[in-house]
Design a protein around this nucleic acid. Structure first.
Lengths: 145, 145
DNA sequence: CACAAACAAATTGTATACAATCTAATCGTA
DNA sequence: TACGATTAGATTGTATACAATTTGTTTGTG
């Protein structure tokens, strides 16, 4: 009973489980992130800043695949919470340098258990998790070009 | 140089490429969906209705992992475009039955090429696409419970 | 040096998402 | 059969996302 609309079946679309799984897993983070008063996007922004300490808005946005329209209000929010600082760079006033504050650093200790808590609810074999990881980055790489 | 924050590195988080890949691939749909004046969420809603013809709001939302807060305005939009009808069911007035219209059916022919166009920019081997599909549904299944 | 092109952020407008709450209808059971 | 519990959908409020445009700065080139 295949027909010309076969390709339009939800079950034949790779994009759909990708979209749904991403949404559901981000939702799984919510109770843990609520405890430290962060949203998921704020959390991944801090993941980068915890490692790199400072970065301009554009570079930060490229790391996490978000544009200035999303980053600007997000960063203002994190600034208002005291976790980051934003300042125009004197040598090139077009750039805004984002840097982690001492208060932002403190939050890192409270976040350190979150990945394990999430990992335990995804419940993939290590080899499967690695393969999923590899395939997702392959998709990401292919899409960019 | 591993430390107690190792788990917080962006590159060690399975969730991040999932989140980013989903976002990027949905964005890839945009030019094709623009041509038929649909958003991605409207598109997956119609994918279900093209197959099932009619369904109440709750069942439809469960199919695509969206709650009534998202579905209600979405369905009103599709109704205003003439692609679906919404009507309270007489036997149980709590339910709103969504059904595809003739105009909605017509749109199906215009959408039929979209999956191939997207597939060609994801560029996975068929075996890889199948494995990714399997792993994503495994994650989805594990998260639900 | 002038000035158009390029660039980084910010702004604007639209469309999700989803938690929490509310309303109306129906169910279950004492 | 009354009525509390449950259910479906709608509403409210907050936070993304992103295209398109705007603003201000810097760069490159004639």
């Amino acid at each position: 009973m295949s027909n010309k609309y076969e390709s339009l079946k939800l079950e034949n679309q790779l994009c759909f489980p990708l979209y749904a799984a991403a949404k559901e897993i981000v939702r799984k983070y919510k109770p843990f992130l609520d405890e430290i008063d962060l949203t998921y996007t704020q959390y991944i922004t801090l993941l980068v800043l915890w490692e790199k300490k400072e970065m301009n808005v554009k570079a930060l946005g490229e790391c996490i695949y978000l544009d200035s329209g999303t980053m600007t209000p997000l960063l203002k929010k994190l600034e208002s919470k005291g976790y980051i600082e934003r300042k125009r760079m004197p040598n090139d006033e077009r750039n805004v340098l984002i840097s982690i504050t001492a208060q932002g650093e403190e939050l890192r200790d409270k976040a350190v258990d979150i990945p394990n808590k999430i990992g335990s609810c995804v419940k993939l074999e290590p080899s499967e998790a690695m393969e999923l990881y590899r395939l997702l980055y392959k998709v990401l790489g292919n899409i960019e070009s």
